[in-house]
């Protein structure tokens, strides 16, 4: 059995009196793609921030490739590639300057950064935009830039928060294949998304977060066997108590008195 590259045990985090994470347990092994889904405010981003070392935890154990991001942040971060949900970037930097900046922060030599980035940008059809300011890039292009930045240092663990956001169909297909290929080469992938059918098809295992706890975990087939609902969307709605929204929408339109 391959070793777990991501280990989360009994993770607890509160903001004031509000307990966001209430004893999360999750492991991701090398070569595995784990989907991490949950309603808004369920604690997905908080988990990710703790994993990356952007947030301190209240209790529990977290490990990235055997290193605790809280106590050994440098070792953990060096092995981690992260694509955030919101593409906040220094818009006045050019693509090349941004990649050199990120690569250098990971201690890479400039030649290595150029070689790896050229390969990524060529694949993402961004080679011609090396000298372009980030502010002039479209949302999809920024997403590709974030992916390139996350892969430059060949991380062992890749955390992707809504990685397909803003991508066109072709690019989305490419990224999904890329994720599979990375997993096939022994990388552990944490895939956070609200797009259920992508999670359903792409991920080896799915963890559904609800009320600060993992409400269900397993492969899609296992979840379908255990819980009611033909699709992941149905399983998710059943577990989290979310309706299909029709009744709520109708009620809202009536309250707003739309003719």
């Amino acid at each position: 059995m391959t070793r777990a590259l991501v280990e989360i045990h009994g993770l607890v985090k509160s903001f004031g009196a509000h307990k966001v994470l209430d004893g999360i347990d999750l492991e991701i092994r090398a070569g595995e793609i784990v989907g991490y889904i949950g309603p808004n405010g369920s604690g997905k981003s908080t988990t990710v921030k703790i994993l990356i070392g952007l947030l301190a935890r209240d209790a529990g154990e977290v490990g990235l490739c055997g290193f605790d991001p809280g106590r050994e942040p440098l070792e953990a971060k060096a092995r981690l590639g992260y694509v955030p949900e919101t593409a906040l970037l220094y818009e006045s930097l050019t693509v090349a300057e941004h990649l050199l900046f990120v690569g250098r922060l990971h201690g890479l030599a400039d030649e290595v950064i150029r070689e790896r980035a050229d390969a990524c940008l060529e694949t993402f059809e961004l080679s011609g935009r090396l000298g372009a300011r980030i502010g002039t890039l479209s949302k999809g292009m920024r997403q590709k830039l974030l992916l390139t930045s996350a892969l430059l240092h060949q991380p062992s663990v890749v955390i992707l928060d809504e990685p397909l956001s803003g991508l066109d169909v072709g690019s989305a297909l490419l990224v999904k294949e890329l994720v599979r290929e990375l997993a096939a080469r022994g990388r552990a992938i944490l895939f956070c998304s609200h797009v259920m059918d992508v999670v359903e098809r792409l991920c080896d295992r799915i963890a559904i977060l609800h009320g600060g706890r993992i409400a269900a975990e397993g492969s899609f087939e296992e979840l379908r066997g255990r819980l009611a609902g033909g699709s992941l969307e149905g399983i998710f709605a059943g577990l989290t108590g979310e309706s299909n929204g029709r009744e709520q929408a109708l009620r809202l339109v009536e309250r707003l008195r739309f003719e």
Binding site: L54, P73, K77, Y82, T86, L88, L89, Y90, L105
Partner: peptide
């Protein structure tokens, strides 16, 4: 664009 400082926070 100081929100982009996450890049520094996430870097080793």
């Amino acid at each position: 664009h100081a929100g982009a400082r996450w890049i520094l926070k996430a870097a080793p």
